[in-house]
Amino acid sequence: MNLLESEVGLMIEKIVDAIDIETTLLCKDEEDAKNTAVQYLKSLGFNDVDVVFVEHNGFAARIRLRAYVFRPGDRYAWIFGGDAR
């Protein structure tokens, strides 16, 4: 589709709404997994973050993290260009 190729260079501006990261963490419990994950996302510069799903089993946690880049009602970069960020 080559959508917005000319106007938007950065990946973050092409994201429709959110970035999800799935991984498995070695950790003692779900809380440990959540705290580590949220801290990590915030260290990447994301503020609107959440743990969508976590499943701990003894020593490891399967976890899905989410960082919203655009929420409904925001000024989306995919419509308004880079200045919307």
Binding site: V16, D17, A18, D20, D50, V52, R66, Y68, R71
Partner: peptide, 12 residues
């Protein structure tokens, strides 16, 4: 995201 209630549904 059907059972995820803390945020908006994503296109993914």
């Amino acid at each position: 995201d059907e059972a995820y209630a803390r945020g908006a549904i994503t296109v993914s």
